[in-house]
Design a protein around this nucleic acid. Structure first.
Length: 320
RNA sequence: CGCAGGGUAGAGCAGUCUGGUAGCUCGUCGGGCUCAUAACCCGGAGGACGUGGGUUCAAAUCCCACCCCUGCAA
């Protein structure tokens, strides 16, 4: 069976790996063009491109898949099925019609929940306890196609956007291999329509979403830190108004660590315990900061930050 | 040539403007106190101050070049 793979980000990598190790015939990988990114705006390839080249798979990087020339090229490739994961472009109906076995999409949420570009991040930000992966038959809408299968996954308190992405990508890869294997054996997938009335949206994140509001509960702040990890990152400002990214945290809503943090204080107020742990008061409970990153510095343990920047109990983080 | 900050002991930082004995908070090692401790007290080890050149009696500090790291922006 001739499989054409479309994907761009890290999430797309495990599925490609599995397809390769299970000896599916991968006739090509379609991804976004190299874009200027990083410091100095150098041209950088999408993560999936490197993997594809290692496997000696032909890589296509059309500016827009809907361009007539590229659609023609796709028809000539004659794929039996197209698999798409975190690709970044919507496919027009003319492309959806090409493969006889349809276009299968791997989406990291329990559809119809969290349709859109950032389902993993939003599930975390909203403090969900559970998420999952859905395989669906792609249609012209945004993540509105019929569902082939889903697999659930509990979200751990320590999970971040990065760890969860990795787990879900692996799950999705497993599901995909099963489904394609069945197709090869002549068992086309049974797809059932989504309950569209239950749909929620998970739009692409923006910079300001990472802005921490210390009046929220410790769990909500923790969720924001987890959900925005990687990009755009959760941030606040300390004493002299400099930016501080919060990389890793742990909430303590009901468990008061020591008598040092029992006194009710203004949200954003810092407490340094005798063993140099860093706690911040929130609207409900305290949150312990584990890893932080001051602007223009590397990621460091909170203790190192406290030592080097001479942080004291009573200092505070603020919104500007 | 997108904008900006940085490289000083194992970690995180001060010192650089105004050149003159290498500092802070930790960690680590040894000792002490304690029923006990990540707490407290005493003591020790550990630095080519990113690299190369220049100025000077003297450079972490001033000048030039280069390497590496990071935030912003995309």
């Amino acid at each position: 069976m001739r499989v054409l793979y479309m994907g761009t980000s890290e999430f797309a990598i495990p599925a490609l790996n599995h397809l390769n190790t299970h000896d599916f015939e991968i006739i090509g990988v379609v991804t976004q063009p190299d874009r200027p990114s990083g410091r100095g705006k150098k041209l950088n390839p999408p993560p999936i491109k490197k993997i594809a080249l290692e496997y000696d798979i032909t890589v296509f990087q059309p500016e827009k898949v809907r361009e007539p020339e590229f659609v023609t090229l796709l028809k000539q490739l004659a794929p039996d099925v197209i698999v798409i994961a975190a690709f970044g472009q919507l496919l027009p109906q003319t492309v959806l019609d090409i493969p006889p076995c349809g276009v299968i999409n791997i989406h990291p949420s329990l559809l119809p929940k969290y349709r859109g570009a950032a389902p993993i991040q939003w599930a975390l930000i909203n403090g969900e306890k559970e998420t999952g992966v859905s395989l669906m038959v792609l249609d012209a809408g945004e993540d509105t196609g019929d569902i082939i299968c889903t697999e659930r996954l509990q979200i751990a308190l320590e999970d971040t956007a990065e760890t969860l992405l990795q787990k879900l990508a692996e799950i999705g890869a497993g599901l995909l291999v099963d489904v394609l294997g069945n197709i090869t054996k002549g068992q086309p997938p049974q797809a059932t329509p989504q309950k569209h009335e239950d749909a929620t949206q998970a739009p692409r994140l923006t910079k300001d979403i990472g802005h921490i509001d210390w009046n929220e509960s410790a769990y909500t702040v923790h969720s924001l830190i987890r959900g925005t990890s990687g990009w755009p990152g959760a941030y606040t400002y300390y004493n002299d108004g400099s930016l501080l990214k919060i990389i890793q945290s742990m909430p303590h809503e009901d468990k008061i660590k020591e008598k040092e943090v029992t006194a009710k204080k203004q949200p954003g107020t810092v407490t340094i315990t005798s063993d140099k742990q860093l706690y911040v008061e929130t609207g409900l409970g305290q949150i312990q900061l584990l890893k932080v990153q001051p602007a223009t510095k590397k990621i460091m343990d909170a203790t190192d930050f406290v030592n080097g920047y001479q942080l004291k109990t009573g200092d505070s983080f603020s919104n500007s």
